[in-house]
Amino acid sequence: MNVATPPAALKASDFASDQEVRWCPGCGDYAILKAMQKALAEWGARPERTVFVSGIGCSSRFPYYMATYGFHTIHGRAPAIATGVKLANPELDVWVVTGDGDGLSIGGNHMLHVLRRNVDLQVLLFNNEIYGLTKGQYSPTSRVGTRSPSSPQGSVEQPVSPVQFALGAGARFVARAIDTQQKHLISVLKSARSHRGAAFVEIFQNCIVYNDDVFGAFTGRDEAPRRQLFCEDGKPLLFDGGRKGLRLNVPRLSLEAVTLGEDGVGDGDILVHDARNKTLASLLAAMQPPVMPVALGVLYDDPAPTFGRGVDAAAREPARAEALNEMLRRGDTWTVTAASEIA
């Protein structure tokens, strides 16, 4: 009798390839890599079913360090390639790894379409607000005034917000995490993976060489509690150790940070997070320090039909000769017989 042997449980280290990791010492990418390997191990993912597809940039070296299938492609195109990978084999667990330049500048169009089509894959956008691999030019997420080799007087362009872009593109899962917060990052990665459809995760990733401490205003040891708000579905939107929370200012149709117990603010005034509420997700995504905290965690999670699921199962199998012969003979045909056969 044959007994199926369940695959051995894998450890995080089983998801690490034999390649030496070559990011700069202290780069936030190390922490994300570690979190990813742990998340997959905890999930019980199979390396042979897991594919990482990346574009170009520091973050896009990611696939080389994972002991899964990996495809390091060309600048900006990972979402398009991953769409083909997933459509041709829907059984695969597909992850797109990209950065702010790769995913929102040269590849912005593909990002828009992979999200609105709702291809069942995860997009991890490592946002360090700078072009690292090309030595430090300002990026589409750089704040106004960013000094860089290509903006010596400070950049003048308005930055794009990755999570607001994703919501605008029609993404049905939008989340945010910080590279160094391992536990939280792992839980966000797992939520993204369990979401059916395109899941978009912005990860604040510190570039120690070209843009060090750019997120210091909300990641610094002193600022973190006051400036970070972790969204949890069904839980009140509280931060600063539960001392503060978010209240809806109805006349202004906006969120405001309030302190519990001050000015008559009670528990009942604090908004409860509803991950299916896109309007709330948009308001959370728009919050910026120092006036407001930064919203982290799953901002929005409202599944919808995914792309490619409606395809006939027959399309998943190679065509049969009979089906092709039948197709070629559809419509008007005529038979030519040799003259000798008539006589």
Binding site: I81, G84, V85, L87, A88, H110
Partner: peptide, 12 residues
């Protein structure tokens, strides 16, 4: 995107 998706299809 068209050629990239085709490449992804071949990869798969």
């Amino acid at each position: 995107a068209a050629v990239c998706a085709a490449i992804g299809g071949s990869y798969s």
